[in-house]
Nucleic acid binder design. Structure first.
Lengths: 326, 326
DNA sequence: CTGAAAGCGCTTACAG
DNA sequence: CTGAAAGCGCTTACAG
């Protein structure tokens, strides 16, 4: 493998200075046509590729947006991180900001703070998803002075932007429609109490049903299954509302096993791919992830450039399928 | 936002030279205990974060492995890119190589060659997935002198490593077992003829069945659905083998619509999450993606360090479910 | 229109 | 054990 050629190699061979090469390659408009052609030809001939690190180090223009995804690979069947990744890359593609990807987990969060990461990499702004209130980064966000937009997650402090649906309103609407369609006794299976969105969904349910039955299944299909499988006097329940589709699927499996699937309405949350494929197909709350990412990128760039921080709700949609004819 | 502090700021404040700071921070063992403590304290005090670009530019040690994923966000329900991403990050985490992520599509491939990318970023090795034979990068791989391992994809040229199942053998085994369980007339629905694995699967089928019925559905659920929905004399078909689970699901939907689902065996390929959730649950060929990524990373590092290129098969597994009791 | 030179913030022989 | 200095490969005022 030949030694990589540098801007100086190109300059020498083209008989010009490296400043001139730099100007040509960066599309400055102050270079003679002849010179430009010559330089371009030589650059191609030498397979010149400008060193990225040198470019970043020397340039004043440091527009970089990092996407931070936590615990990317935990749950089979849930593609949100992938949708966000694809969406952010696509949206950033149309801007002058460069994309930097950083996948973390609890351990990595402890090893390197957000501030460290942003400092090392000259990050102008952050899009972040997947943190629970137990995560170090969640708390660091509140005092971080780097523009940030959180996706599907709200941070109490006002200096962090966010894009999500109105989880409380959505859950309230589901609860209301469950009641309206004749259900009296409703069980709400929540994920955990360290995810902001889960707490909001629970608040929504509580706003409509004074004393709801509530269980926690840690966003796990298996745990939701067990809860319903072992529940006593299940016949008294009219409907089960789960804070995620995966848990709702666990519920449906358990109801089927107990032969009461037809009598009990089930509603999920997210509209993952599975929701429309299982039997019965799952009534659920759809979140428009592509829209989340587009808005997050736009809001973040605005925040970087003007300092304006917004917390935005994206419209949700209740998708009625066979598991509950709301 | 305060100006970022540099190594020189730390050095001055600690009353030492920047070389000393560098040595302390990079865990050289030739620094006095006192000095070390002082430097560390000052670094923390100033929230010092070593500039990444400067570090890369100046350092001799440039161990970086890039993961290149093509068309990351096309198909809902297919999580392979995410599994690979998570797996590669995790595997790399245990090595001294750094992770670089690069998501491309047809347009980006045209704008920047692999060679350019590797040159700019000082990439020591490449893991790549998702290319078809129509992709520019697919062809560039053959003449690229950067160590590379392809996942779920074979490149004819011997200088590219690969990790996949033996697609031909797997498809042949499915065909054989379909015959063995009494099916006579078998339709093979393939994806496309520009994906290496698709061609291998077809070769496997042909190796067992002399003149198989073959259709192409471009890996699309909808297209597979239409093919089966509109097929004449479907009652003459005993079994349908699709080259992907998504297409198999389209097949099942169409068979259900035509009320012949119970009479016709269906087998898919991949074992995506959906496979076990649909009704009837789908018999399919499972690929062990986590294993793919582990092996790919190990092979790539070996290739970088010793030059040895291997093309490796990972064992597949035929998962028998309700759609075909093989 | 083009070039000389400083500077970005590190690492790394080398000297002492 | 510590420091002075060169060098990594670019960009960018500035001068002409």
């Amino acid at each position: 493998m030949m030694k990589k050629s540098t801007i100086l190699d190109v300059a020498k061979r083209a008989g010009v200075s490296s400043s001139t090469v730099s100007h040509v390659l960066n599309h400055y408009d102050d270079i003679g046509e002849e010179t430009k052609k010559k330089v371009l030809a030589v650059a191609k001939e030498l397979d010149y590729a400008p060193n990225y690190a040198a470019k970043r180090l020397s340039s004043k223009n440091k527009k970089q947006i990092a996407l931070i995804l936590n615990e990317i690979n935990v749950t089979r069947g849930v593609a949100m991180p992938l949708e966000i990744l694809g969406g952010v890359i696509e949206a950033l593609d149309k801007t002058e900001y460069e994309f930097v990807f950083y996948a973390v987990n609890g351990r990595k969060q402890k090893m390197k703070s957000l501030k460290q990461f942003c400092g090392e990499r000259d990050i102008s702004g952050l899009i972040i998803q997947g943190l629970t209130t137990e995560d170090p980064y969640y708390h660091e966000l509140k005092r971080l002075d780097v523009p940030t937009v959180a996706i599907d997650m709200t941070v109490k402090n006002g200096s962090v932007g966010s894009v999500s649906i109105d989880n409380q309103a959505a859950a309230a609407e589901v609860a209301r429609r469950l009641l309206a369609s004749g259900n009296k006794k409703i069980l709400f299976i929540n994920g955990s109490n360290n995810a902001a969105v889960a707490m909001e969904r629970e608040a929504g349910v509580r706003s409509v049903i004074a004393h709801p039955l509530i269980s926690y299944a840690n966003f796990s299909e298996e745990m939701a299954f067990q809860i319903v499988e072992q529940m006593e006097r299940i016949e008294e329940i009219d409907a089960i509302f789960a804070a995620s589709d995966l848990m709702a699927i666990g519920v449906i499996k358990a109801l089927k096993k107990r032969n009461v699937a037809k009598k009990i309405d089930v509603v999920g949350f997210d509209d993952i791919t599975l929701a429309s494929y299982i039997t019965p197909s799952l009534t659920t709350v759809r979140q428009n992830i592509p829209e989340f990412t587009k808005v997050a990128v736009a809001d973040l760039i605005q925040q970087i450039e003007t300092g304006k921080v917004v917390q935005k709700y994206i419209p949700y949609e209740i998708i009625v399928r066979d598991s509950a004819r709301l």
